[in-house]
């Protein structure tokens, strides 16, 4: 099953349970956002609305419903479009959470697609989920595989209060990563551990889990058992187990495919519980001169070189 087929199946189940208002542009028309929202319908008494093109207003609608106890999900085709709704994400959300009794609020989730294939051109080059989450300390979740998607959607999609969630367009047609059941899940489902290992600690951010998974496989071939983590929330994530693992292996390899200067892995590197390391390798996007042109948006890794480095230290 592909990544998007799996997420779509989970959405159909979760959304169909409740009388939600789901809305957004073309959510039940055409390709249904590339299959993301195909067949996704709310339970009895709910509504699905194909809206006007008005992202600022669409971002605010959900907050109005939330205040009135009505739960909703705003699906949007591109995370870039959500830039038009920043006022609502920051000012309205701050206003509401400062004074409201969370128990009396409805649920509101904004669910954009991170358009990270890189071929759309300069106006669609924003791929860093953290840029949205950190602007007002908004809880956000990336969905990267069957395990985190299942847990996060079932526990947070329609929970009271507000959050952001996102999927990676680049991964839509990929087969789901063959990951085992998580060994550990961080507080509020902000991070997941998939493998244990004493040889190195590999941690993925944003949508770099596929590369991190491959790196772990390559390290295994070289006889190094690496622990593998994925951080799903860019703000205030639980990195307790990651630090514990790193302090044991003394080798930390971070993979972050964010293009922004606002890199979520910096919180981990700055944590004062992290002891001195023998290897600290940060693999992030090196933006070339053509980064604003329609070129493939991919974190490229020389796996052989990385494995050699880990073996040498």
């Amino acid at each position: 099953m592909t990544y998007i087929e799996h997420i779509n199946t989970l959405l159909r189940i979760q959304v169909g349970k409740l009388p939600l208002v789901i809305y957004g542009q073309n959510i039940t028309r055409g390709s249904c956002l590339g299959g993301f929202t195909r067949g996704v319908l709310p339970g009895k008494g709910g509504r699905a609305i194909n809206t006007t093109n008005a992202e600022s207003t669409l971002a605010g609608l959900g907050f109005g419903m939330l205040l009135e106890g009505q739960s909703s999900i705003f699906f949007t085709k591109q995370m870039d479009f959500l830039l038009l709704g920043i006022d609502q994400l920051v000012n309205t959300y701050n206003n509401i959470r400062s004074a409201s009794d969370q128990k009396e609020l409805g649920s509101y989730t904004i669910f954009p697609i991170t358009v990270d294939s890189g071929l759309q051109g300069p106006q669609s080059s924003l791929n860093t989920f953290a840029d949205f989450c950190t602007i007002a300390k908004i809880r956000g979740y990336t969905l990267t595989n069957k395990w985190d998607a299942g847990r996060i959607l079932s526990r947070h999609l329609t929970a009271p209060g507000f959050r952001l969630m996102t999927v990676s367009q680049r991964m839509f047609k990929d087969e789901l990563l063959p990951l085992p059941k998580p060994l550990w899940v961080g507080k509020d489902d902000t991070a997941f551990q998939y493998y244990a290992g004493d040889g190195a600690t590999v941690v993925a951010f944003n949508f770099a889990l596929p590369q991190a998974f491959t790196l772990r496989e390559e390290l295994k071939k070289a006889g190094i058992a690496a622990a593998l983590f994925n951080v799903n929330s860019p703000t205030t994530y639980d990195c307790g187990k990651i630090i514990e693992s790193t302090n044991k292996t003394k080798k930390l390899i971070v993979l972050d495919d964010s293009k922004s200067d606002n890199l979520p892995h910096n919180h981990l590197l700055a944590d004062d519980k992290l002891k001195p390391l023998t290897l600290r390798l940060v693999i992030k996007r090196e933006l070339k001169k053509d980064w604003l042109y329609p070129v493939k948006d991919l974190l490229e890794i020389d796996y052989k070189k990385v494995v050699e480095k880990v073996c040498k230290t």
Binding site: A59, G60, G64, E68, N95
Partner: peptide, 18 residues
């Protein structure tokens, strides 16, 4: 809800109306 940002409260009002 009351907003100090011009134009911010119209969409929130529409959400409440919905």
């Amino acid at each position: 809800y009351a907003s100090s940002i011009l134009g911010n409260s119209f969409p929130v009002g529409a959400g409440v109306a919905l």
